[in-house]
Structures are given as C-alpha cells and as structure tokens.
Design a protein around this nucleic acid. Structure first.
Lengths: 351, 351
DNA sequence: GCCTTTCTTGAAAGCGATTACAAAAGACAG
DNA sequence: CTGTCTTTTGTAATCGCTTTCAAGAAAGGC
C-alpha cells in the first residue's frame, strides 16, 4: 500500500478545505483581491485576475457561505412554509417560486406546517434563525407572535392563495371563486349543493371557500343543509369518507358537490359510482386545483384552477423586488378560474 | 395618528435587531454566558440563567445562524438534489427525509435537476457553497467533478433508489425488482411484454429497470420487441402517447406492459380503454410507486411499491449518523415490493 | 480557619468572508 | 523630471456567535 500522495497545492493541513487566504497566498495577492476577483466587485489588473482564478480553480476553492452571509448581512436564501408539502397545489407553488428565486441566485428553504398555526410559527422561526432574507407563507391567519417576529427582523414576507387587507399577498378571493362555482351549479338548476372540504382549523382559505358557497346559495334564497357541509382530512380516501358521511346523514342527498381538492373530488366520485350514482346525471362534482389527472378521469373533472404556478412565480417576483429594495405592489390578484368539463351537468329531472 | 411607541427595550438603534451582546447587557452577564444558556452547553447559575432567558424573550432575540455556523463550522443544513420535485416518489422521499432531519435540528434544502447530470453538478455545487453538512442524491450516475468536489469538502453523501458498489446507498436493485415484476407476468402466461419508461438519459434507475425486464424475458428464452420498448417524458399524457406509439408501430401488441410510474400506467390504461381494450383481459398493466390513486383506479392498479418514505427516513438516519461521526453501514437495502391488484391477469386465450 | 478541589464566569481569540480606508503604483501633462 | 489625478492593491476592522483559558467564587476536608 503506497503512501497517499499529498499533492503539492495542499500545503499545511490536508484535512482543511481551502479558504480565501490559501487562494490569496497561492496567487500572490491579498484576500481582498481574491474577494474582488471572485465576486467581480471591483476592477483588478488582468494578470492578477487570472492568477486568482487559476489558484481558486486548482485548489477547488468553494467560498464559505456562512462567512459571506455574516459579512454581507445577506444570506441569499428565502424560506417558505406551506401547510402540506405533499399537496399538489403547494408543490407547484414551491416549484415555480424556487425557479424564479434560483434565477436571482437565491436558495429556497421549504418547510411544512401540517395546517397547524403553532407549527407555522415554529418552522418560520427556525427559518428566520437560519438567516433567510425573505419569507413566503400560505394564507393570512397566523400566530400573532409570528408577525411580530417578522417585523422585528424586517424580513420581507409575502402571503399566497389569499388577499389580505394588511399584508402583501399574491392570490385570489377564495370566497368569491368558490361562490362563482356555486353560482354555476345554481345556474344549471341545482338547489341541493354540498361541500367536502379539507380541515378548516387554522385554514382561512378553506373556511372562506365554504362561506362563499353559503353566500351564493343565500343570494338565491337557498341554504345548505348542515349534513351537506362536511370536513375531512385530505386525500382520495377522505373524499370517499366524506361523501359516504353525507349520504349516511339521512338527509336528502345533494345533486352537486364542491370539493376542496381534485383528490377529494375523485374520492367522492368513486364512492358515488360504487353506490350506483351516475356522474354527472345523479351528481355533479367540482374539484379544486386542476390536478394532472383531472382531465383524464371519466367523466373529466370540472375543477377550479387556482393557477398555482403563476402565483409562485409572482410571489418570487415580489420578494426579489422587495429584497432588492425596489418598490412593489402590495396586492397581486391572480384569479382562480372554473374549468368546466364533464363532471357537471344540470340535475336530472326528479323521478 | 399617534407617534409610534418605541418600547423601552430598544435602547440604541431601533433599526437593528438584537444580538447576543444586547441580551448580555440586558441580563447583566457576558455574551459567553448568554451562549451557554441559550445552547445549554454548560451549567449556569439559576438566577443568571433566568435573567438571560427573560432578556432574550423580551428582546425577541433570534440568533444569527450565519454567525453560529461560522463559529461552529457546522451549518446544520443538508442538501438534496432530486431529478424532479413534482414526482410523487421524490416528494415522499424528501418529505420523510426532512422529517427525520428536522428532529435533529437540521434544515433541508432541496433542489431539482430535471434529470440532467450537469444540473445535478450545478445545483449540488450551489448547495455546497451554501455550506451544507450533508447531501442526498438520487441514483449513482453523476458528473465526475461532483464526486471530486464532495470528497474535497468532505461532505457526507448518500444516494437513494440505487445500490452502488462505491458509495453509501439506500435503495434496492432496480433491475431485480423490475425483473420480478416481469417474471410475475411471465408466470401468468404472458409472452409479449412491453415497457413504457420515463427518460433514461442520465438515469441509471430507469435503464436498470428495463434491463431487468429484458433479462427476465431472456431467462425464459423470450425477448422484447424493440417496438414494445418505449421511452417517454413522465406523466399521464406521456403514458397515453407511449401506448399509442406502441400500437402504431405495427408490431403485434403486447399483452402486458410495465410502466415507469403509476401516472404513466394510468395514461396507458386510458389509451387502451379508449381503443376498446379490456384491462386486464386484453392488457395487463403494472406501474411503479404505489401512488395514492393506484388503488382507486378501475381496475385497481398492480404496482411496484418502492417504499419511498422508508428510503427517505433511512437516508436521514444515515446522514445524521455520519454527520455525528458515528459509524454507519454503507448499504441499506429496502427492497421494492410488487403489490398485486386488479390490473394484471393471465392473457386472454387467443381468439 | 486554611488549603485544595470543583463550579461559574468573563475576556478575548477565533471562524472566513467583505469592504472602508489609505497607501502605492501608473498615467498624463507641463 | 515632477506634480496631479486615477486606478489598483493591501491592511485591518467588521459581521455575531462559540469556546478556550484562566481567574474568581463556592464547597469540602482536615
């Protein structure tokens, strides 16, 4: 077994990775010059410039981000806390948000809260300790301490999927968009409309949507039966359970339902069909988010497209501007859109 | 409009957020003691302990992570580069990986590469500059420079969804597991078996799976028609296109197909049905990943569960141990499992 | 009560970058 | 060849935390 070759460039301690000083010595310049070359912050004579580049290359120099962050007082990272990192809508938001930030050299650090207001506080604090330069949150209802902390640290923050009167937001009016879906069903002639939503605790969006539906019904002098207003945890299984529960209540079944996600809608469709109900003949179904599979179900699912990717991109734009000290608009509305497919139709004439 | 209340605790510059020194002064101790109390690294007399906690609380103190990282030479963050952040399997891995790391106080920074080997290098370098203490990659084929860089910085790294002879891995033998699925179909009596996989460029897993299927066929003296081996970009639409392409080739259609994801399988099922083919009567279909919807399709989809969540957790365990300097096993095999549901059956006797 | 041992504490030295400031080196005109 | 104006460079301070070291306080043994 041969002695390990210590290559000449590793002078003293082969265990340590190279730092600015090593590059400086090797290139025969000062650390200031190294920094100037590597960051392009000031003119450096061509020969020294080249020497630095060469030395950095040879040593495999990688700048220490913590040291840089400390001295620049900028971390070049932004955080995001979403309720559920496995939910399609949030993934799309994060994905486009990240793309936008990455273009500007920012890193995204994402965390999830499990729809719990205390967890949002905990995760956001964790991110703030990390030194993030900006923060994205979902919704407008948060722990009061969180807003105080964000203000104290002067961290630019933007909220998505909501429109708030207080803070910067990118999103839409959840009540209005769900209301429009309800109105569409009412226009088709439905009168018994139900809703299956995800958990509404600490979730202003879910709550607003249900309220918007109630309001649309009320505007036509109708009201939703309490038995037709069910709340479940997300997922296909949840959708099945939700619809089963609605039928089991003994109340006259709805002729149309609006679901919190396309997964829930899919679950409800499965349950309905297993009971011999025809969709859309006996039951019209509307989902949320326009998931990949929505157009491929049979019948294809009518759904509310919330434009997650556009929202994420806009949130990125917003934060990038704020962090650069540029002026920004507080509210950006990217309205949700009802995509009508085959899962909705006028109610079948009563037998 | 009243003058903003400057609360007493903000003594000098109300623009700056509080630092250790401020807490120390307010509590009447040194910064060393503040650090000791806040990190619990050494015993401190009860009264001083309390004074520090109180001062920190009142000031809304949040430690500067960059400074901490710099002095501890530990960033308490790990990176992960996955091919596609919108793919269910990778999301599950990231989610469980993050949970595990979060327990130990680590932050996860995730990036995606779009199945491109150069992007993996770029993103990983970006993360290394950030100062990550550990790194997770998908698969075993990477840019040679990447391994050099990881070695130079002495960053613990673990690869998932693969088993390598060189590096630490958590995963399974892709060829063997796909081979088992093929053998299962062969046992049912199928002889014309096709495969629809995602892009295989820079993707050792996809390639290995297809090879495993070829090998299983060869072991029975059979071979796959080239027309039955198609490669598409991921997604339901891709699955439809893939199966359409297979039929359009003019070759005798397969009686069974194995798909790279459940989404692809779903797409292929849709296309098959639209052509009047019965599943599993005319066509058996196997997917990959056991997506949420797999069990709910009709017929329910037979699929290979790769245990993404378990892999992510194990990868977290592995890195946590390595970063703590504890000994670890290099290879952890978490075998994939065929879940047989209704989409597979013996081929219908030829008409 | 005095000496040794054990706990607590604070002063100060890093960690590895960036950058303000001043000195040095060139460029140019007279 | 000298003085002035730029441009390029290096020195050293700084960012905010952790941690070593040594001193001071408290505790225990005789």
């Amino acid at each position: 077994m041969t002695k390990p070759q210590i290559s000449q460039e590793i002078s003293q301690d082969p265990l340590r990775f190279p730092v600015t000083k090593d590059v400086a010595e090797r290139a025969g310049v000062s650390t200031a010059t190294v920094s100037r070359v590597l960051n392009g912050t000031a003119r450096v004579r061509a020969d020294k410039h080249e020497a630095v580049m060469k030395a950095a290359e040879e040593l495999g120099f990688v700048a220490n981000g913590a040291a840089r962050a400390l001295s620049m007082r900028r971390f070049m990272a932004v955080g995001a806390v979403v309720p559920n990192i496995e939910n399609e809508a949030f993934i799309r938001v994060l994905s486009s948000f990240q793309d936008r930030l990455r273009q500007e050299g920012y890193t995204l650090i994402a965390a999830n809260s499990g729809y719990d207001i205390d967890n949002v506080l905990r995760e956001a604090t964790f991110l703030i300790e990390r030194g993030i330069d900006g923060l994205m949150l979902v919704g407008d209802i948060h722990h009061p301490l969180l807003h105080a902390r964000i203000a104290r640290q002067k961290i630019p923050m933007v909220q998505v999927f909501t429109l708030s009167t207080e803070r910067a937001c990118i999103g839409f009016d959840n009540a209005a968009s769900a209301g429009r879906a309800a109105s569409y069903l009412l226009d088709l002639g439905h009168t018994r409309i139900g809703v299956i939503s995800g958990l509404r605790k600490d979730n202003d969006r879910g709550g607003a949507r249900v309220e918007g539906i109630h309001a649309a019904l009320a505007a036509r002098g109708l009201r939703m039966l309490p038995e037709h207003d069910v709340e479940i945890s997300y997922g296909i299984g949840g959708g099945r359970d939700g619809f089963r529960q609605m039928l089991a209540s003994g109340a006259e079944p709805p002729t149309a339902i609006i679901c919190g996600t396309d997964q829930i809608a899919f679950g409800a469709m499965i349950e309905a069909r297993s009971r011999g109900l025809d969709i859309p003949g006996d039951l019209s179904v509307i989902g949320h988010n326009d998931s990949d599979f929505a157009a491929f179900l049979s019948p294809p699912l009518t759904t509310i497209n919330v434009h997650s990717a556009a929202i994420g991109r806009a949130a990125g734009d917003h934060l990038v501007s704020r962090m650069a000290g540029r002026p920004t608009v507080r509210l950006t509305e990217i309205d949700a859109e009802l995509i009508v497919r085959g899962s909705t139709a006028p109610p079948r004439a009563r037998g």
